[in-house]
């Protein structure tokens, strides 16, 4: 456990102090700010013309989907260095000859990446939070949405970490990470592939979009939480196997 925390703290500091993180945070802020202002403007106009609409579904939901799309690309860029760079710089030797297990290494790296990802998510939360100063709305659905998004980020980080463990090249790690995450999202498209109801139900269950929709509507489904957590655990486990297997090659 101490090994995990040592690695997590060191990597977290190195991640959030890196120029890359500043760049990502800056780019995220710029895009989200423009987008959020536009959404608010549209919403205000519609209110003026007397249209009935909820701020959650018109403004926050669009904001959340932008946040998700940006983070889908930003997280693999954030996690790319976690293992690929260690291999390239030969610091991997240090980790693998230290008296810690492969699980300690991978958990430490995951926590570091997840911490940095949550920091980006916190930035995105500032926008709805600031809106609450000038507008009254129910925080419930917003909080469940953010909770769902934080679980989704755990998957992104674990997938990013997994792709980082497969290669020495950081660029390839990013590309691989994005492909894997997009793959998970597009899995739900498989619903139309087969007429078999069993296959359709299965596809529905393993679709990120389907599981996430509950959180947006403000409901906390245990099955969705279990699905997100176990997907993240699966990829962390796969990474652990890759790290462990490097001893046998």
């Amino acid at each position: 456990m101490r090994g995990t925390l040592t690695i997590a703290w060191k990597d977290f500091k190195s991640l959030v102090n890196s120029p890359l993180f500043f760049f990502l945070a800056g780019a995220c802020c710029a895009i989200w700010s423009l987008n959020f202002l536009n959404l608010l403007g549209d919403f205000a106009q519609r209110q003026m013309f007397g249209a009935e609409s909820s701020i959650h579904f018109t403004v926050f939901l669009s904001h959340l989907s932008t946040v998700n799309i940006i983070l889908l690309f930003a997280i693999p860029a954030l996690t790319m260095k976690l293992l690929a760079e260690e291999k390239k710089m030969r610091t991997y030797d240090l980790l693998l000859t230290a008296p810690i297990t492969a699980t300690d290494i991978v958990m430490g790296k995951f926590l570091a990446g997840y911490g940095a990802a949550l920091l980006l998510l916190t930035i995105s939360f500032l926008y709805p939070l600031a809106t609450s100063l000038v507008s009254d709305f129910h925080f419930g659905p917003l909080l469940t949405s953010y909770f769902g998004l934080s679980l989704l980020l755990a998957i992104y980080v674990s997938v990013g970490l997994f792709s980082s463990s497969l290669t020495q090249s950081v660029m390839f790690s990013v590309i691989l990470g994005v492909i894997f995450i997009l793959g998970l999202w597009f899995m739900s498209q498989g619903i139309n592939v087969s007429d078999n109801p069993t296959v359709q139900t299965l596809m529905q269950h393993i679709s990120l979009g389907e599981q996430f929709s509950g959180f947006i509507r403000g409901s906390l489904r245990v099955s969705s939480v279990v699905f997100f957590v176990s997907t993240a655990v699966l990829f962390v486990f796969l990474t652990q196997r890759v790290v462990e297997s490097s001893r046998w090659r």
Binding site: S14, S18, M89, R90, T91, D93
Partner: peptide, 9 residues
């Protein structure tokens, strides 16, 4: 190791 395992940053 042959290449010292140091973190530049």
């Amino acid at each position: 190791p042959e290449t010292p395992p140091v973190y530049g940053d």
